[in-house]
Computed example of a mutant assay.
Amino acid sequence: MAEPTIELGSVVRLKSGGPLMTVDSMAGDHVRCVWHDEAKQLQMQPILRSSLVVEQPPRR
């Protein structure tokens, strides 16, 4: 079975673990993810697509 495709709104996680993040935008091999850290502060970071795994596809 093929891995789900990363799309806008997908819930992802680093392959190495970490918090659940939502895909906010995509450009080439980079995906900008947003999440709340332990202090409930909003974080944003571009991350290489190959470093991510889809935990939940986007809601339609």
Rank of each mutant, 00 (worst) to 15 (best):
V12Y: 02
G9F: 12
V53C: 02
Q56L: 15
L8C: 04
Q41I: 13
Q45D: 06
R49D: 10
V54M: 04
S10C: 09
G9K: 12
C33D: 04
Q43W: 09
Q56W: 09
L8R: 11
P19Q: 05
P46F: 07
T5S: 11
G18R: 09
V11G: 00
R13K: 09
V53D: 02
D24G: 01
M1N: 08
G18Q: 08
T5N: 04
V54P: 02
T22N: 08
I6M: 00
C33S: 03
V23C: 08
P57N: 08
S51T: 05
M1C: 05
P58A: 15
S51M: 06
E7G: 00
L42W: 15
P4D: 08
A27H: 06
S25C: 15
V34F: 11
V11N: 00
D37T: 10
P58Q: 13
S25H: 14
G17I: 11
P57L: 06
V23H: 07
K15I: 07
E55V: 13
C33T: 13
M1F: 10
R59H: 12
R59S: 15
V31N: 04
Q56S: 13
M44I: 01
A2D: 01
K40Y: 01
E3W: 00
V53L: 05
H36P: 02
E7T: 11
P4M: 12
R32F: 10
K40T: 02
M1Y: 10
T5F: 02
V54S: 02
Q45F: 04
M44C: 12
H36L: 15
V34W: 07
C33L: 08
S16W: 01
M44V: 08
V23P: 09
A2H: 07
C33K: 02
A2L: 09
V12W: 01
P46L: 05
G28W: 12
S16P: 00
A2F: 10
K40N: 08
V12P: 03
V23S: 07
H36W: 14
